[in-house]
């Protein structure tokens, strides 16, 4: 088996949060035991709501944050052992906000060429050629190269951000909500572009979104996160066809498409939105779960495989489980947060 482009093993990240000036610092467990791997040309989706840890995960994979526990291997080597520049050459981000991530005083051409400049790739005329080529690929008109970011539309700015991420030939691109700030017709252009670039350059991608429809359209495999834990993972097709974790089922029901006119569903969620400072015992989803039973409050479910494929979920009573599949030996009690 070939080495994945990126592999993360048992990532746990704890922030220390102080409330007020004299408050005691308290731990906030943003990620708990998250593992993943992404192969060449593969797109892994991460879906979850605010506070689920998806952005912390992105920051760790970018090397911007060192996890409290666990390790990240980039092409088989620990990411911590990479010099900063080499790491930046291999892993590039595309963020949600194309307004905030582009220096407003630089021209588009300089912005896109910056990674080439920083990594001292090629002589000047070669850089210019590279910039022109990538600008064509992302669909930026040549005249936009001389413009400032403020003169571009939101969709064009996101194209600039994508061109800049790709110009130096990264192995992995981390897209954190890349289309959330865009209109739907523009979002469609950007999603198509990312799929084309993946096909052409065989780039691996981590694609973070709160929008399950976008995840379904874009990704090969997906992970569902809740309060820093992966509650379900598997091939996108299988996960959608038969969600195993009740939270995934709730998310799926909360996604509205133009074809479904059945009114607003009652998701059956109980309680209020969870607090990451106060993580529940047992299954972290149990206080809100529509189908929780008494055991769920005490027993911490680990991510287990159900059936033959690599579809896993962390639930004591998984939905759509093949006959006879159940956790007979429930895992150890919840680690205290």
């Amino acid at each position: 088996m070939t080495t994945p482009i990126i592999e993360a093993r048992g990532l746990t990240h704890i922030y220390s949060v102080r409330s007020g000036l004299i408050g005691r610092a308290r731990p906030l467990r943003a990620l708990h035991d998250v593992s993943l791997s992404i192969g060449e040309g593969e797109i892994l989706g991460v879906v979850g709501e605010s506070g689920c840890g998806k952005s912390t995960l992105a920051r760790i994979l970018l090397g911007l944050e060192t996890p409290t526990a666990g390790e990240v291997l980039l092409e088989g080597r620990p990411i911590a052992s990479y010099p900063r520049r080499e790491r930046a050459l291999a892993v590039q981000p595309v963020f949600q906000d194309p307004y905030g991530s582009l220096n407003p005083s630089m021209s588009v051409e300089d912005l896109i060429a910056l990674p080439l400049h920083i990594h001292s790739i090629g002589p000047k005329h070669e850089r210019q050629q590279k910039v022109a080529r990538i600008a064509d690929q992302v669909g930026l008109p040549r005249r936009a190269l001389a413009a400032n970011p403020s003169q571009l539309s939101g969709g064009q700015r996101q194209r600039v951000a994508i061109a800049r991420a790709l110009v130096a030939g990264p192995r992995l691109v981390i897209c954190d909500e890349p289309t959330s700030a865009l209109d739907v017709s523009v979002q469609a252009q950007i999603l198509n572009l990312l799929l084309d670039l993946r096909a052409e350059h065989r780039i691996a991608m981590l694609f973070i979104s709160h929008n399950l429809s976008v995840i379904e359209y874009m990704t090969d495999r997906m992970m569902v996160m809740y309060l820093g834990r992966v509650v379900e993972s598997g091939s996108t097709k299988e996960t959608f066809a038969a969600p195993s974790h009740p939270y995934t089922a709730v998310l799926k029901e909360a996604v509205f498409t133009p074809d479904d006119e059945n009114g607003v569903p009652d998701l059956g969620l109980r309680g209020n939105f969870p607090n990451a400072m106060d993580i529940p015992s047992g299954c972290v989803f149990h206080p809100r779960c529509p189908v929780a039973r008494a055991e769920c409050a005490t027993i911490y479910p680990t991510l287990e495989r159900h059936g033959a494929s690599d579809h896993r979920s962390a639930c004591l009573f998984p939905l759509n489980a093949p006959e006879g599949v159940r956790h007979d030996t429930p895992a150890e009690a919840s680690p205290s947060a």
Partner: peptide, 11 residues
């Protein structure tokens, strides 16, 4: 808002 919160608010 998050999608699950959206559904609750719309209801």
């Amino acid at each position: 808002l998050d999608v699950t919160t959206q559904a609750q608010i719309l209801r």
